[in-house]
Nucleic acid binder design. Structure first.
Lengths: 226, 226
DNA sequence: TTTCTTTGTGTCAAATTAACACAAACAAAA
DNA sequence: TTTTGTTTGTGTTAATTTGACACAAAGAAA
């Protein structure tokens, strides 16, 4: 480590935007900090990166110790570097976002925070640090991604109805989607995944909403419609 | 900074994938390292983040000191965290990519490296660290982004012909594009940018290749076709 | 002025989307 | 078990978009 001795490194943290879907509402999990800075303010859950730890591991650690969750969909979002983003000093945050099904995890306040709570994405309070910016970027990413990749099933139970999926999409994208055309797109996509070939029918091909790729098929992706 | 005293932080670096377009070829700038680790191997240019420095500033510093460039298009790519990616110890790399016009900058070896050279993206040699992975991700990002956002002009002169732009797109995407339909899309897009309304004509609307948004207009974007 | 090259528009068939009628499947109630 | 309503999926059609290519206008070179 000689090579680094001349450097004083900024601290490295991960902040998590945890999305959950419940009662037709997309929500985000926030912690009420019980210590300075931003004591009693809502913030995203986060923690500092340990020397030997990967981002994945750190995310799991945050989810487990602070929120009691594991095995969730996770994706790296962006790294935030504003020099003044943390009043304690220089901290780079490599933000990630997670998609979970709130029913599976009873959210309980961990040791650090005095309160953990779901907030609908339309009613996010003032956040500490630059977490509002992180949240906004995460929501935009989710909205963009759901249109070409089947993230979003992680927000529902293993089995879900077409209506539930339809509502989820309308909710996340904030637009109305024709129920029947949506249904057709999902079924077409599922068919392609399972068989590798397009579904025939007079004109019933709607390959736009999802552009499933082969990787997904390899990953044994399953769209369960009850 | 008391709060951090318990932590030993991983080092933070930025690695740059600098794209240039020259003689109908998309290339990447590589440095031949003249010190361990990976002495005499090709790598992406990079440097460690100083305490008060933003990513932007660090990128500029790398471009200026190692490559003699400034004022280039720059975008954050992804953060790489494999614990063993640097044999010297734990180093997180927040990779960025840049688009430049090679004609504007005479590439000269800086102090650190003993050689700087353009490599066509189809002929990248074995790279040190995990830089092959970073390069691959950058190329994929560029290919994806160019299809809905007008990055890519930065690779050409201020004035360029339609043929040049057309070639650039074919080169980056690695596919053939009909010259005439391409031309129409570009001109339609330019028209929308300048006037805010669609270009009329019997069926000559091709709004797919670029989805220019208003932000671009605000940024005074100009597509100069000689 | 002629000839060649570059560039842009017209046209048309195929593919895709959006909107909505209708029918089958399912569930709840009687 | 029948009735009644709700959910879900397919059919159909018009409008939009794409892709392929003919052809013409504009420039550049000879």
């Amino acid at each position: 480590m000689k090579a680094f001795s001349a450097y004083k490194n900024p601290a490295l943290a991960v902040d998590l935007v945890v999305f959950g879907y419940h009662e037709k509402t997309l929500s985000v999990l926030l912690l009420n900090r019980n210590e300075e800075p931003f004591k009693d303010r809502w913030t995203l859950p986060g923690a500092f990166l340990q020397m030997e730890e990967s981002f994945q591991q750190l995310c799991s650690r945050i989810l487990q110790t602070k929120l009691g969750m594991d095995n969730v969909y996770l994706e790296q979002l962006y790294s935030f570097d504003a020099p003044d983003r943390d009043p304690r000093g220089r901290v780079i945050s490599v933000a990630h976002y997670a998609l979970i099904n709130p029913k599976k995890f009873a959210v309980a306040a961990g040791k650090m925070a005095n309160d953990v709570q779901w907030f609908p994405v339309k009613k996010i309070p003032a956040l500490g640090f630059d977490h509002k910016e992180i949240f906004t970027k995460a929501l935009q990413r989710l909205q963009a991604k759901i249109q070409y990749f089947p993230v979003g099933f992680q927000l529902l139970d293993e089995m879900f109805t077409m209506s539930e999926l339809h509502e989820l999409y309308e909710c996340i994208l904030g637009v109305e989607i024709d129920r029947r055309n949506f249904s057709r797109k999902i079924l077409d996509a599922e068919y392609v995944i399972n068989t590798g070939i397009k579904r025939e029918g007079s004109q019933n091909r709607r390959p736009e909403l999802f552009k499933f790729n082969k990787k997904l098929k390899q990953n044994n992706f399953q769209l369960n419609i009850s």
